[in-house]
Amino acid sequence: MLDAKERRKLKDKARELREKIVEVTFTCGGAHIGGAFSQHEILVALYYKAMRIDPKRPAWEDRDRFILSKGHGGVGHAVILGDLGYYDPVLLKDFNKTGSPFGMHLDRLKVPGVDFSTGSLGHGLALGLGAAMGARQTGKDWRTYVVMSDGECAEGSVWEAAMAAANFKATNLMAFVDRNRLSLDGPTESLMRLDPLDKKFEAFGWRTLVIDGHDLDQILDAVEISRAETERPVMVIANTIKGKGVDFMEEKTAWHYGGLDEAMRDAALASILKS
């Protein structure tokens, strides 16, 4: 549980970062803004509270590892890493520009603080399992956090990794599904049904929690549960809203990817301020 002051601080931080995501989306001409907003509180809770990291030492051996398996959320991730001081956030003015280190999907060889290059869906859970097994093998106590999208759970590779993580008792691995119920072509439940997603992961051997993915306390409580778990890896089905925080983007498939003109940017910022 967060105390009231901490909660206030984190919420303000989340809002400030949403505004920055809007600014980057405005300057770069277009970004995966809908999914960046649905995953947002999970990343904020992990990066500003839960994870053992040191932005001054991005290659610190004992840091916790983070994998944005839904790599298209890179715009949100990049804004957070810049804010934490992994690099000068001014660099983000070149997001998506030719020759920039920052593309839609972040490259670990170009962006400090990024542990794994993602963008092709369905890789992150297995990468995370490997990292977690690597830590255990080498007697290290760092933990690995993976954030997946719900759409990517249609990939067989997710379930191969899910089966393996339970099999190998990777309790130093924790994963989230950003359950915003929308993928690119529409609602997951009318495209490729996922429900009951929690029961599926449960059946694959995970301890599965269902939470409100925009509630910082619930996210951090889940992290505590994962840390205490000794038998099963923990999967969090985080119910979220695609486009969360900007009224005209919420629950809209069209805002999976989009650009903003000045008027839309101002409307988006106004909406974030109200929320």
Partner: peptide, 8 residues
């Protein structure tokens, strides 16, 4: 899909 980078 230039701006999407190597994965795309």
């Amino acid at each position: 899909f230039g701006q999407a980078g190597t994965t795309h």
